[in-house]
Design a binder for these strands. Structure first.
Lengths: 121, 121
DNA sequence: AATTCAATTAAGCGGCTGCTTAATTGTCCG
DNA sequence: CGGACAATTAAGCAGCCGCTTAATTGAATT
């Protein structure tokens, strides 16, 4: 007649994880606060590809557009976000603007995702 | 009067990265195809928190709702996605349904993001 | 069986996002 | 200067996403 749920309680309304534990969990949540902003960058396939390409070599906007088979404004739009998030750097060379990856941590994230989730479906 | 751009070309319309290189890059892109689906899961703060909480311990829906200060339908909605992506498992215990993390790779992704992007602003 | 509570589902809405087309800026070259 | 081209910006639209409220399901308790 004690708790029969493997050291857990029975009815939700009565006690959440015992109070101390609950606030400990809530604190833990602070650790991940704000991370989604970063993941949101990678949530778009085109952006992930841009980052991946730039991790290989410097490229100008129209090269990216051609490689990804998208319009230049579309690419430019994505680059704008990557710029404001300080993930890429750019330099002007005549009429063209060349972009390079400025944050290589993010490639590690991509690679790690690759390792664990390659070819699933 | 040769190329003055450090072994690169000048005008975009004329040659993208020399043809062989271009198709090599395009092939590389296949490596990251489909990954965004995964990152999209983490692009929502609530989901990242759910995953993080479940990596600590098994929790029922109403606990999650309380810890995250959100409605149960909202939480349930997110869990549905996590279920279809096979990231969580669940078991029924009376009126409650307990969820556990079924894929711990994804926690590594979160931790890695944490390490590199903690406390930036 | 009737009530209660956890959970899910359904329907609907408001906001965000990623694209398009069109206009604008900046640079080079004749 | 004027034309050409890379790039960005602006405006607008369509689809998606995450929430809400309301209805439904499922299980336990009486």
């Amino acid at each position: 007649m004690t708790k029969h749920n493997g050291s857990r309680r029975d009815i939700c309304a009565e006690f959440s994880p015992n109070l101390a534990e609950a606030s400990a969990l809530k604190e833990k949540l602070l650790e991940v606060a704000g991370l989604s902003e970063l993941f949101r960058v990678l949530a778009d396939e085109t952006r992930t590809k841009i980052i991946y390409l730039l991790s290989e070599q410097e490229l100008c906007v129209c090269d990216l557009a051609e490689l990804l088979e998208m319009s230049m404004p579309a690419i430019s739009h994505h680059l704008r976000l990557l710029r404001t998030m300080r993930l890429v750097r750019y330099r002007r060379a005549g009429k063209q603007v060349f972009y390079t990856l400025d944050d290589h941590h993010i490639v590690n994230l991509i690679r790690q995702a690759q390792e664990h989730y390659a070819e699933e479906r």
